[in-house]
Amino acid sequence: MRKLNNILVSILLLVTASLVVASNVNEDPLEREVLNIAEKLRCTVCQNQPVAESNSGLAKDMRNVIKEKLQQGKNEKEIMQYFVDRYGDYVLLAPPKSGNGVPLWILPPLLLLLAVIGAILVMKKRGEEKIITPPTPLSEADQERIRHARSAMDESGENE
C-alpha cells in the first residue's frame, strides 16, 4: 500500500511539475511584434499569403529584416514604408487608404448603398402598383336589384 502511495505521489509530482514548467514558457515579445507586422505584408512570391505565414525564402528574409529594423528602434509604420518603397503597394495585404487604393475601399460600400437605394425605390413602386383600386360604385339600378334580392332572401329566411 505504501509503495502504491509512493508511486501515486511521484506521478502527481511529475504531472504538476510539467505544468509549472509549461507555464514558465513565454514567447519573445520581439518575435510577436515581428509577426504582427509580417501579418500585414504580402509575401511577394506567393501572391496571397502573408509574410508571417509563408515558408518561402523571401518571406523568411523579410521577417529577418523586420526583426533587425525593430531592434534598430524603427516603428511599424516606418518598416511598412520600407517595404512599400521597394515592392510597391502590392506588398500590403490591405490596400492603402489613399491614392490607387481609394476605389477599393469606397466602391463596395458605395455599390451596397446604391443597391439598397435601388431596392427601396423598386419596392416602393411595386407596393404602389399592388394597391387594389376600389371598383366603380354600382349604379342606382344595380343597388335597387340588390336591395330587392336581399329582401326576397329575408322573407324566405323567416320560413326556415
Binding site: 511577394t44 512570391v45 529577418n64 529584416v65 521597394r86 515592392y87
Partner: peptide
C-alpha cells in the same frame, strides 16, 4: 543573405 535583394525589391 538576400539582404541586398530586399533592398532592391527583388522577389525572384
Amino acid at each position: 543573405s538576400g539582404r541586398a535583394g530586399i533592398e532592391l525589391g527583388v522577389y525572384g
